[in-house]
Amino acid sequence: MGRLSAIPLEYAHLRSPSTESRVMFKKFQPSTDISGQTAVKSSVQRSIRAGILSNWKIDSDTFESIWPKKENITLVKCRDHISIYALHGVPLFFQHFEGPFYPTLRLLHKYPFVLPTVRVDRGAIRFLLAGAHMMCPGFTSKGGSLPPAEEALPAETPVAILAEGKEHAIAIGITKLSTEDIKKVNKGVGVEVVTHLGDDLWALQKV
């Protein structure tokens, strides 16, 4: 009994992805960091589909045009438990451990409404493109914006990050604080960046 309960403890760090840093696609080399591609079982595909439909703001008809029911998706396994799901070699979305599904930035550009949005000011763009996480003041300053209080997002929500004066999303991140807390605390990391324009996932156009 003692031994049995000891085992999960040992692997406890593997089950809590939220605690570790998520700079996933920094220094991501397709040649060495992709460990294999496999077809996904149809039952698993069904659960992925259901998971995405419940988490993203998207209706099933639109999603059907992104990923038709008949098409089989491939799972591209990468280092650090990143799984990229690709359709005909084009990455559509990815996942870290059992975490939420994120669309790739290219997919998000095509369907910008799937994720809730936050906006950073112009001064932050430079740092964002260098791979930094987004600090709270970038959202609360004049150029940034957060959803209003009635649409507040809880912590650990995937969000699309827009930039001041720009039309398209610049990055995808996950909130570390709820949006109301970001406004209140106004210090430290507010949104962790998962993938941004120009990172190695962006460079990976075809798997």
Binding site: D59, D61, T62, E64, S65, I66, R106, H109, K110, Y111, P112, F113, I125, R126, L129, K166, E167, H168, I170, L197, G198, W202, A203
Partner: peptide
Amino acid sequence: APQPKPPLQVLYCEVCTFPPEYCEFG
């Protein structure tokens, strides 16, 4: 509108692959 929404066509810069509005940061 229950019809599927058409995807947005996004133009990407052929030089730096970013949408052109982000070229200035490339």
